[in-house]
Design a protein around this nucleic acid. Structure first.
Length: 547
RNA sequence: GGCCUGUUGGUGAAAUGGUUAACACAUCGCCCUCUCAAGGCGACAUUCAUGGGUUCAAAUCCCAUACAGGUCACCA
């Protein structure tokens, strides 16, 4: 029996050969320096910050080199695969404006010439490559039972040896074809293992784009390449897919660093060019006194849907990711305010090697800054669509008073230093709610009555002073002029000099008006607020203001 | 336990052998101001996990130790 016939028996029904696949998936014809990379999640549930982080970074590198970023679904673990997982990933990632040049577009559809991009649909490819190894005596069937491998583990533990299937523990490494076929005919189950050519005593050098040269012992583990269900393990799928999809850069988190010797060995064994690896340190989180990687199971609040619900703009999240991944981004962004943050060019050697703590405060600050740069119209539209999903009452008001709302949102916006008080779409209502009578009337904000609050001042003001046609200076000067009548100093300095002579200064006079009209002591520019409210509403609010 | 990676202020970090260790967030002051949000100015690491060594000179190079994280599946 030839090796080829043997391989046919071990992995029957494979349609193509490794060589055929190599011609089916052609080398890409891309400009010099173009990065072909991929985002390769498992459809095991929601997308969280960690995924977004890697996928966005991968996407940026591809984009900025006019390369390709593809989406591949790693669903070889049929037990963990979740229904609608693929749909969810695509939706979440698309919400962040992360677009793929090719890849899965749903559970069953693919877009691109290197597909299918869903691993469970590529069984033939993996098996063709595995057969190639078998034919070259670089892979073998392993009939080890669970009990047997458990026993090996126990022996290794008691002898304090390295765990795993290697050297003398690779019991079926040299199984004869006859023996194997006999076992198969007896119905014994088997998997395919790689016959590792490595020696643990030898060192291999691996190049990592962010960490530089890395030295490891050679891999000598006979890792599983094809599982009993005929699907490949991650390591083997990585080799086959990334080679056939002509991927140039493997951008992934550093939990894969320790399997790098396996991956390198696989590429070398096939004589394929090794891809460039870039291992990113994942975002971490502090829990008590320890710091650990963000976890999907333990940190549900890090699901991207959380930011959606909070109304944090996707741009802010992306800007935050950029500040984390390349610390020189922040400075660049600060001095290139006219540019889009996507114009920043990421570099691998600026990527930090230690995992950063996820800093919500910083994200909020970025969000606040970002929201101060967009137009009132845009803020309005986006708050509207946020409210449509999460706050019907506010949605109705925004719809009813569209132009008015835009004007409110425009207070101190189109100026050199715009206001930075809105942190998220969810906080808009809190910041401007009092501008709507419907909300103002049932507003339960507690404000403290102060001794100097004076109803007469308010009445006098609205009846004799306030004039809608005044410009800002006139408006303010009129308030100042009115101050002495009610015991307030027209000038702050005057008041500070002789505080005992006054009830307060013009600042306190303004506070009275402000509180009467908004029920709060801190608001944006009072002149603008009064102007938008209009004289009638000011008057009505003042009348209802009980001191 | 083996292997690997990392360790600069509350946080993210810069600095790639050479003056007082950038910058940003947070915090605290002061200024400006009709109140806020901002903005301006200033404070905040005698020190870069610890201990040795190399050097005229080290956060930067070397060694050891400690701590943290990752990984050692027919999971990815």
């Amino acid at each position: 029996m030839t090796k080829k016939e043997y391989a046919d028996i071990l992995l029957p029904g494979v349609k193509h050969t490794k060589e055929e696949y190599e011609t089916i998936y052609k080398e890409r014809n891309l400009p010099e320096g173009a990065i072909v990379t991929r985002f390769a999640p498992s459809p095991t549930g929601f997308v969280h910050m960690g995924h977004l982080f890697t996928s966005f970074v991968a996407n940026r590198f591809a984009r900025q080199t006019n390369g390709i970023c593809l989406l591949r679904i790693e669903d070889t673990d049929t037990k963990r695969t979740v229904e609608n997982g693929v749909k969810q990933i695509i939706k979440d990632v698309n919400d962040y404006g992360i677009k793929f040049d090719e890849g899965a577009i749903s559970e069953t559809e693919n877009d691109g010439e290197y597909g299918p991009y869903i691993q469970s649909e590529r069984k033939d490819q993996y098996q063709a490559f595995a057969k190639h190894l078998i034919e070259h005596d670089l892979a073998y069937p392993c009939f080890m039972t669970e009990e047997e491998s458990e026993e090996i583990r126990k022996i290794q533990e008691s002898k304090k040896e390295r765990l795993g299937i290697y050297g003398k523990y690779a019991k079926y490494r040299d199984i004869t074809m006859e023996n194997a076929i006999e076992r198969i005919n007896n119905g014994e189950k088997y998997i395919i293992r790689f016959k590792s050519p490595g020696n643990f005593e030898n060192k291999v050098i691996a190049e990592d784009a962010v960490r530089g040269e890395l030295e490891f012992p050679e891999n000598d583990q006979d890792i599983v390449i094809i599982k009993q269900d005929g699907l490949p393990t991650y390591h083997f799928a990585h080799l086959v897919d990334d080679h056939l999809m002509r991927v140039t850069h493997i951008i992934r988190t550093d939990e894969w660093l320790s399997s790098l010797p396996i991956h390198i060995q696989l590429f070398d064994t096939f004589g394929f060019k090794r891809p460039i690896y870039a291992h990113l340190s994942p975002l971490t989180k502090k829990e008590g006194n320890t710091v650990r990687k963000l976890s999907k199971r333990k940190d549900p609040e890090l699901a991207v849907s959380y930011y959606h619900e909070e109304g944090i703009p996707t741009e802010a999240v992306k800007i935050y990711i950029l500040t984390i991944i390349n610390s020189n981004f922040e400075e660049w962004f600060d001095s290139n305010k006219d540019k889009d943050f996507l114009d920043f060019e990421l570099s691998f050697d600026k990527v930090s090697t230690s995992g950063s703590l996820f800093d919500l405060e910083k994200l909020k600050n970025i969000s606040k800054n970002y929201l101060s740069t967009i137009s009132a119209k845009e803020l309005y539209e986006r708050t509207l669509s946020y409210s449509q999903e999460f706050d019907n009452e506010f949605y109705d008001l925004l719809t009813k008073y569209k132009d008015y709302s835009i004007n409110v949102l425009n207070i101190e916006r189109e100026v050199e230093r715009p206001r930075k008080d809105i942190e998220s779409f969810s906080s808009v209502k809190k910041e401007i709610g009092y501008m709507y009578d419907e909300l103002f009337e049932k507003d339960e904000t507690q404000f403290e009555y102060k001794d100097f609050y004076d109803k007469d001042l308010l009445t006098y003001y609205i009846d004799n002073v306030y004039d809608e046609s005044d410009d800002k200076n006139t408006w303010f000067n009129k308030i100042k002029e009115m101050c002495p009548k009610f015991g307030f100093a027209s000038e702050t300095k005057e008041y500070k000099k002789n505080p005992d002579n006054f009830k307060g200064s013009v600042a306190q006079a303004c506070e009275i008006i402000r509180v009467a009209v908004t029920h709060r002591t801190m608001t944006p520019d009072l002149y603008e607020i009064l102007k938008l409210l209009g004289k009638d509403r000011i008057k009505s609010r003042i009348e209802k203001f009980n001191i």
